[in-house]
Structure formats: C-alpha cells, structure tokens
Design a protein around this nucleic acid. Sequence first.
DNA 1: CCGGACGATGGAAGCGGTTTCACGATCGGC
DNA 2: GCCGATCGTGAAACCGCTTCCATCGTCCGG
Lengths: 343, 343
Amino acid sequence: MEAVSRSATSLGEVARAAGVSRATASKVLGGHPQVSESARQAVERAAAELGYLPNRAARSLVAGRSESVGVLIPEPSSQLFGDPMLARLLGAIGEELSANGLQMVLFAPQSATDIERLDQYLAGGHVDAVLLLALHESESLLARLQARGIPMVFGGSPRTALLASYVDVDNHAGGRSATQHLVAQGRRRIAHIAGPRDGPAAGQRLQGYREALWNAGLRSDLVEQGASDRDSGELAMARLLATQEDIDGVFAASDTMAAGAMWALQVLGRRVPDDVAVIGFDDSPIAMATQPPLSSVRQPVELMGREMAKLALSMSAVRGQAPRQIVLDPELALRESTVGSAN
Amino acid sequence: MEAVSRSATSLGEVARAAGVSRATASKVLGGHPQVSESARQAVERAAAELGYLPNRAARSLVAGRSESVGVLIPEPSSQLFGDPMLARLLGAIGEELSANGLQMVLFAPQSATDIERLDQYLAGGHVDAVLLLALHESESLLARLQARGIPMVFGGSPRTALLASYVDVDNHAGGRSATQHLVAQGRRRIAHIAGPRDGPAAGQRLQGYREALWNAGLRSDLVEQGASDRDSGELAMARLLATQEDIDGVFAASDTMAAGAMWALQVLGRRVPDDVAVIGFDDSPIAMATQPPLSSVRQPVELMGREMAKLALSMSAVRGQAPRQIVLDPELALRESTVGSAN
DNA sequence: CCGGACGATGGAAGCGGTTTCACGATCGGC
DNA sequence: GCCGATCGTGAAACCGCTTCCATCGTCCGG
C-alpha cells in the first residue's frame, strides 16, 4: 500500500507470482526453448498482469551490449544533408531501430570538446553501432572506431579512404533520369549547374546528365559549376545564358541552386517552363516555394534510414562482416517547372 | 597478452593498479571527500593510465537513474518546428546534455505502434526526463508521464491543459518588433497574414502586430488568415490588396507565407521593398532563397535548446518542483525585403 | 524392472558499479 | 598516558538480469 510509485516490477516479482524461479522466468521471457508449456504460460500471465518491463541497464550490463545505436548528425551548417531530409531520415532510422528494441542515441558534436567527449563515449562501448550522417573532420575518430571494431554505417558515400559500409542514393541514376525527363519533354539544349566538388555526389550527377544526353544524341557540354547556394545558381545560369542563349532546359544539382537559376531566367526574360524547363535535386521544401513549383529528384530518405538501421543491426549482430554498400534509386517529383500547368 | 581487444577496463582493475579496494576507488572517482590524498592520487593516476571509463549500464543499474534524456521529435509533417530549426535545436540540446554527462535518446514515433512502444519505454523508467518538441496527439501518454513523475519540458507552449514546464519564444514580442520595424521604415499601411490557429503562437504574433500599430497610431485591421503554406500566403496577399490597394508593408506569420505574399505582390505589379516591404517569421532557409532576400524574425533556437536541457536537468535532479516557464526574446534578421539594397 | 539419457528446474555466480558499515589506526583532550 | 572521537579503508551487500551447472523426475530401451 505504500509502494505506489516505487520502482518498476522486477523479474523476481514476476517469478514469484508465477511460482517459478527467476532463472525460469528469465528463460521464458528470453524465448529459450528449455521450458515447459505450463511454466511458460504462468510466467507470461504474471508478466502481463504485473506490467513487467525488463530493466535495460541490468540487461545490458550482463549482456555486454548496450542495445543502442549512436547516430552522428552533421553540424547545422553542413550542406551534405539538407535539414529537411534530416528529420525524415532520423524518423525512419528511429522507427527501424525501435522496432528491434534498440534505442537511438543522438550525437551532434559542435566543438572540439564535444568530439573528444564523443570519442570517449563511443570508445567506452556504450553503443553497439554508429551511424554517420555526414563526415566530421575527425578521421582519427573514425579510425579509432574501426580499430575497436564498432560497426559503422555511413549515410552517403564516405569521403574517407576507409573501406566502409554505406547507404547512398544513386546520384548517377538521379542525374540521368532528371535529364531524360527534360529530353522527354522535348528539350534539346539542356544545361547543367553542377554541385560543389567536396563529395562524389556532384560528379555522379554530372555523369548522369552526360549519359542521358549522349544517349539522346544531344550536346552535353553546357555545364557550369555552382557552389550549392542560391546565388551561385543564379550566377551560373547567367553565365550559361551568356554562352548559349537558346537553352531550353536546366538540370541543377540542388533545389537551392535551381531556385537561383529560375530567378535568373525570369529576370532575363525567359518564362518557366514555357521557354526553359528547370529541374532540381533533393525535393526540398524550397521546391514547393518557388514559382512555378520546381520539379526535383527525390531521394528515398525514409528507405535510406531504414536500410542504414538494418545494416547496423546486422553488423552488430554478426561482427567482422565485410562492408556492404547499398545504393538506392531516387525518383522524380514532377511539378510545373518542367511540365507546365497545361500538361 | 591475449586480452587485446577485450572489454574496457573495469573499476576493479583500476583499484588493483592503485593498490586500493574497489570501494575506495569508487569514492575517489565519485568525488567523495572521505579519502586520503595519497589514495586519491594513486587512483587518479591508475585510472588515467588505464584509460578507465565507467560502465554506464552498471552505474545506472545501481543508481536507478538512466543518465539519459528522451527527446520526442515531431513527425516530419508537423509545422510547429520548421525542419531547419530542428537540427539546430537538437544540436544545442545535445551539447548541453553531454556537457553534463547525459545522453540524448531520440524518439520519432510515426505510428500508433511506435507511440505504444514509446509509452512502454518511458514508463519503464529508461529516461530521467523527456523533452517534447511538439505535441503528439497522445494526451494519455503525457498524462501517464506526469503520473509517473517523469519530468517533462515542452518546446513551445503546450496545447495541453496540463500545467507544464516549457521554453518558448516570445511570439508577442516577435510580432511587435517585426511590425515596429516596418513602422520605423516609414510604412503606414501595414497588413498581417496570420498563421493557423492550432496553437497559441499565431494569436500572440497577431497581438504583437496590433500592439505595435496601436502604439504608432496606425490602423491594425488589415489582417487575413493564412494556413502556413505558401499558397495560402499568396492568396491572403491577393485578398489584402483587393481590400486595400495601397498597402506598403506586410508582416507574415511565417517565411513560407511571406514567400507566397511576395510572389503575389510582384505578380500584381508591386516592387519589394520599394512599394511594399515584407517581413516573415522563423528565419528559415527560405528567407535566403526568395528574391529579394526576406527579412524575418529569428527564433533563438540554440538558446531554447540549452534552456530546455537545463530545465530538464534541474527537474530530474530535484523532483517535485513547480513547473517553470521560460520565454525568450526573438531578434530581427533584416534583409532586402524591408530595407532595400540602397539603405 | 532397472539403468541411462534427456528435459525441466532452480541455486548460485557474476556483470561493474555504489553504498553501508564495521573495523583499525590516528588524533586530541584530560 | 589512557579513552573516546574522528577519519580512512575495505569487505560485503545489493541493483536486476542472464547463464552455468547440478539436481531431480520422467521416459524409454534392453
């Protein structure tokens, strides 16, 4: 009568209520086969009635596993994962993990001190695996994780030399299908505004653009380098039009740059999509905010998250696996910037 | 020689290396005063040399605390926290928590199953406190947390009837200073596009708008209701111009709506900011992507995160405190949509 | 009908810490 | 120079769970 809000029911209480020993109760709850049907039912009933929940700390203490997966998120300034994707990605990762009884522990190191602390923490074996959503400079941290045998899964192809597991979107296919879409809309002078060269993604998107145009027998040299921000898109578009004024299609490596490009086009008297069709990449909220709304290449963010989680789960269950790479297909999100409102 | 990559060093090993008992070693590491100087130094040296890290599971098992704080993030679709703010907020929360030796466990329930699982999890005492970044429908979950005495801190004023602790931005002050800024720029016919009424924030921003205009002796009835998406902003702006064509300033309750409003203005032949100045709210990335760049009310996201974490820390350290509310001042991010490039 | 094999069970050890408590040594006061 | 208070110390208990292993009962084959 006094233990109202006291600590949760423990295994011992369940065992007593079921009339068995803790050992047997543990076996039942752990799904071991070596228990009689009667014992199993008694324990399960008792557990249900008492609302038993195993104590995570105790379990991981004896098991030597933490039942949790660390997720490293990029600093807010990072361009690699647009913020809007981050929330969706985290949601998907979390769902997959929690469906498997693991928790997601988040790290967002902002300073050198944070990285140091993180290093300590991870080295302490407090997580069963680590998911890296963007590279932080600290190669040494990666190396140490690797050395300690903690499974790592990257989101996006890692920039590092380490042979690692990752889940990425097929940037090449994305660039190709964006460009193919413009071709299919009857566009013939198709330009590309390329993304920054700090990762492999931009190059792959460019290659996709080239391939689509080669296949269509069109020229593929209308390429300008952007820097991922809006202004660089605007400037790149202006340069493109200066070189070749009859451009009728543009594929930009990000929505942000596409927004800038669209602005430049409109300022210079082109109608979108009537004169020039524009398609971006990422399908960020910006794509909905431009006028006209921007077609874009949508990354399968939720799927990526789930695959990352699964990979981590598998790697932490069976150590020493060879790294695996999973590459997912993007899809097109078509809006008025390429198909027109009349279509 | 064989225990190369074995489990981390334990307290026992440190104690042995220091020539003391585990109890004494624990006291040293725990900062207890009842230890001799010599013992203290010996233990500290040994711990440093062996790279000792306490086992979190063991510690929380005996302490009955989990040393971790749960963070509930909204579904991706939620408007309450714009995605870009989420990443910054999480970063700040994480930093503050990890500085205090706690970890941040993330929950992003997507389905009813997830909520159920979450409920179980939280009820199991696996977190010392919960941070709620947006309300999920589940009132019952909140009530159960409350009943169990788990400290909760909301980000943004809660919609619930529960008397709760929260950290919020001063929406009233934000609306007021945005409007005052327009007044200071010499605008006299200032309209407001209000946000959706599903929370208190929109109403407070509106009140701020009214107050500023009353104080300036200007009319404050040029208000249209928006719905937080871009199109609703565009439509609201068109309605406003239809009513009152000489509007020279607009304060929109979100950047998204402001972007729509700007588009409507430009379509209808108004120059921004020459004819009409426009200011938004949130200072989201969209504010940088519009043409001209959009002035906006910036929420002190990092500060909010830190305050939320501190509040949670304090509440979990000393249970049974009265709920506390912290309201932070926003600040203006001025760009060309209100001040012009010539200013 | 007996012995061996096998399945189910619970006692006990142990995971890595913290905390209580009894003990011996040291110290000061008379 | 003796006694009680004070301080530092480590043995041991304990947190809740899993697992090893000895025990016991049952079943089956010879």
